[in-house]
Design a protein around this nucleic acid. Sequence first.
DNA 1: CTACTACCTGTAGCCACTACAGGAGCAAGC
DNA 2: GCTTGCTCCTGTAGTGGCTACAGGTAGTAG
Lengths: 132, 132
Amino acid sequence: MFSIGIAAERSGVMIETIRYYEREGIVPKPGRSTSGRRIYTDDEIARLRFVKRCRDLGFAIPDAKSLLGLTDGSQDRCSSARTIAEKHLQSVQKKIRDLMQMEQSLADLVTRCSDDDEDCPIISELLSAPEQ
Amino acid sequence: MFSIGIAAERSGVMIETIRYYEREGIVPKPGRSTSGRRIYTDDEIARLRFVKRCRDLGFAIPDAKSLLGLTDGSQDRCSSARTIAEKHLQSVQKKIRDLMQMEQSLADLVTRCSDDDEDCPIISELLSAPEQ
DNA sequence: CTACTACCTGTAGCCACTACAGGAGCAAGC
DNA sequence: GCTTGCTCCTGTAGTGGCTACAGGTAGTAG
């Protein structure tokens, strides 16, 4: 049985964030001491760590909640989990593509920039009207 | 002289966003008609488009504001612009690296997932305690 | 007994919008 | 001239996922 501070330390989730997760119903409410302090079991700390790992992998909170829901031994856990993970993987891949496009455009601008104040490509290209 | 609707259409910035930019001082306040409606010049629409392009390239609003400030022919525009762009380029590259790391981890999980409910790697790896 | 923590609740702030609610003005058709 | 419907106005609240207070209580160490 652990205090929220210990739970934070062991799960890697900040205290304020733990309370936020509880408020939002992402993790179940833990027990309380007589004086009203939260008391966490190992199991509850594992749940917090689970959510942290999901978040580190970029899953949105609702996805993390769904994945956490699968840990209690429901049917078709694996295919459900894979569906969520594949969907997320695709969105990560799209983000990477978008960012690489951005990177290309930015690198172009920076490369072509040659301290010529009269024709700075960064300024002038951003200013130029699009063909629309 | 154009209404906010036309300005939105020509700049690609949504009406609500234009008002937001004005409120936040990112673009200067346009003139008003006698009945209080905003009136935009070509120049002001070009500024909106400039901010849009900056945002599309992922620049933060303060950066977009700085870059927009350079369009009025200040000294060292080009090197100032390049400094901002290089810094942003680096942060984009870092984001790409982080996302590719995520992608790798996710792809691993999905690949190793084989509909085995007893040992779904997505669930079990997320649940397993880290060595810490 | 005092000082210092760790904890509590509730609320506001972050970013960059987005989406209302509730009202006013304006142009076109009847 | 009157209605209809469109665009515009202001002001405020919501989004996601936290993070950071303010102001208070409880427990512990010296």
